[in-house]
Design a protein around this nucleic acid. Structure first.
Lengths: 338, 338
DNA sequence: CGGGTTCGTGGAATCGATTACATCGACGGG
DNA sequence: CCCGTCGATGTAATCGATTCCACGAACCCG
């Protein structure tokens, strides 16, 4: 592969001049410029990003460590992150943690070794020392969706409190009183927060949230299935299950179907995170939708701000309830038949 | 950030010795080794992958350019690719082309500039000169899922012919005679092949595939919706629509629902690529399942073989039909009630 | 006891870029 | 006419690793 030296030789100038042309430095004659450009063309030269990064100590690359690529919420997030980053002149390297702290650390280490300019993380657990060290060491960093409390890192996330209140109001109106939740891992902020928001909202209606109605999931489908089966085995099973993410909702659907039961008649279902398929599931699933694209873009902007020496602020955007039929007849689109 | 020089100073040896310890070269005394390791520990030193890559001309990184991250089929592929690559000591950088040739080229260029060791591509179009040049120039490369004919690059894919025949047999048995297809872009191999396989299979039953029953889609949901609406507007609409990927099937569901019609009564539906949500859609969707994980792993193995100087062979794995209810009552799980 | 291995180590070149500094010629003003 | 300035260019240092080569010490064998 042709190097800058080859181009210099071909154009009859020094490597310095070639470099200047490539970085359009003002002080280079028109004649030299055209000769260099011609040489670049004939040799099909492309600057070696590795060498350039070594010298300039910038990779123009962002690292994104997400919790699970198979989760549509995160792929949508990843997509918007890459889009915004590209618009700002950065590339993105994605690391998939599969909800495993060890994998998360593997990717963080890898990205740091590659000297990425900044790191976007949705932490799988509460306190990877590696990540805390990196943050303290001054690696530009932004948390997205989930975060680690007590670290001085901007957080870009969406606040589901209001939407959860709306959800509980909706459920209450439909006559449901025994409400259960499939929680995410307690080590994640979203895992804890969604339970708290749910408990609070229930409290406003004088409803309890007994321990038996808090199932411990891990944001993966299988755990949703397992927890739902547990709920169905209870002497007094809940009337509604609220899954803290879309994959656990999928697992819940699996469990209900495996028993030959029906949603919402036998068990109503709602989920955090709205995805396209929820429109066409049987029945369509009521969900809390985050402004995913906006979150990704805001996170990138905050991170790039940090990288380029500007403040880089935390952002919190509201989520909203999308009512469908999985909790009972939808009072909005109420079609009179039955 | 500490460099190898700092480690050398701390340990009281030369950088050469440090390097030798790090790459566990045999010729280094136990005493030196422990001193170096201690220095590495106290400084929290991590080798700079950028510098290392410049010197060794290896990045231990694979590039993966996929057609669409929002397509669950490709995220599953991406996941298995990363997994296998990690097992073999490689990292993966993913580029998302969003089915756009310009974006695809952007990512290929970017990956080449970063001097990745090898490239895994599922080409969005038939002949990006950039990619052809790279292949000719000797960049280790493997096509996965889709490929470009006439290029000397191994192809790892799945053959859907038999499964499509099974599908048509299934449809025929259910009494369907007017079968339509939502095709993928003609510029992609899978876009063409699936139509061909379908046409062939229909031929075996003496069924025609009129042009009006071939809708031109682009593997994205919106095109599936548009094409399906066109089908429904026909004087004689088809009885079945076969979508060449899962997103277009989603679009088809959108279209059917928007008209207040029902699957399969008003229009039956089948899709290429099986995804988890198809189990829970209304109705569950009959689909052709590819061995996605196996494809990803085989592709990585082929690519790494090429990189490390071994042959690196093409692989074709069979796809299989998964019958559900979207084409009419399932003759296998036939539940006697109605 | 001398010469040839072997082993451990350090010096220095190298990868491909960027960039500070030096140089040189032309040009304009006093 | 001379000198200072400015614009264009080249030389060489540098980033952080790897690795070839040389060198000295220890060791072995005859």
């Amino acid at each position: 592969m042709a190097s800058i030296k080859d181009v210099a030789a071909e154009a009859g100038v020094s490597v310095a001049t070639v470099s200047r042309v490539l970085n359009d430095h003002p002080s280079v004659s028109a004649a030299a410029r055209t000769r260099v450009l011609a040489a670049v063309e004939t040799l099909g030269y492309r600057p070696n990003a590795v060498a350039r990064s070594l010298r300039t100590d910038q990779t123009h690359t962002l690292g994104l460590v997400i919790s699970d690529v198979l989760n549509p919420y995160f792929t949508e997030l990843a997509r918007s992150v890459e889009e915004e980053a590209r618009a700002l002149g950065y590339s993105v390297i994605i690391g998939n943690a599969d909800e495993r702290p060890d994998l998360q650390d593997h990717h963080v280490r890898n990205l740091l070794d590659r000297r990425i300019d900044g790191l976007l993380v949705s932490p799988t657990d509460g306190g990877s020392p590696l990540m805390l060290d990196a943050a303290r060491a001054g690696t530009p960093m932004v948390f997205v969706d989930r975060w680690i409390p007590g670290v001085d890192v901007p957080v870009v996330r969406s606040d589901g409190r209001a939407a959860v209140r709306d959800l509980v109001a909706h459920l209450y109106r439909l006559g449901h009183r025994r409400l259960a939740i499939i929680a995410g891992p307690a080590a994640t902020t979203t895992g804890r927060e969604r339970v708290e928001a749910f408990r609070e909202a229930l409290g406003a209606y004088g409803l309890p949230l007994p321990d038996a109605y808090i199932g411990q999931g891990d944001f993966q489908a299988e755990s949703g299935r397992r927890v739902t089966e547990g709920f169905l085995d209870l002497a007094e099973p809940p009337e509604v299950v609220f899954a803290a993410d879309n994959l656990m909702a999928l697992g819940a659907l699996d469990a209900v179907r495996a028993r030959g039961l029906r949603v919402p008649d036998d068990l109503a279902l709602a989920a955090f995170d709205d995805i396209r398929w929820f429109v066409h599931t049987d029945p369509p699933v009521t969900a809390i939708a985050q402004p995913t694209g906006e979150l990704g873009r805001a996170a990138v902007r905050a991170l790039v701000d940090r990288i380029e020496g500007r403040p880089g602020e935390s952002v919190t955007l509201p989520a909203r309830l999308v009512v469908r039929r999985s909790c009972g007849e939808n009072p909005v689109t109420n079609r009179s038949q039955s």
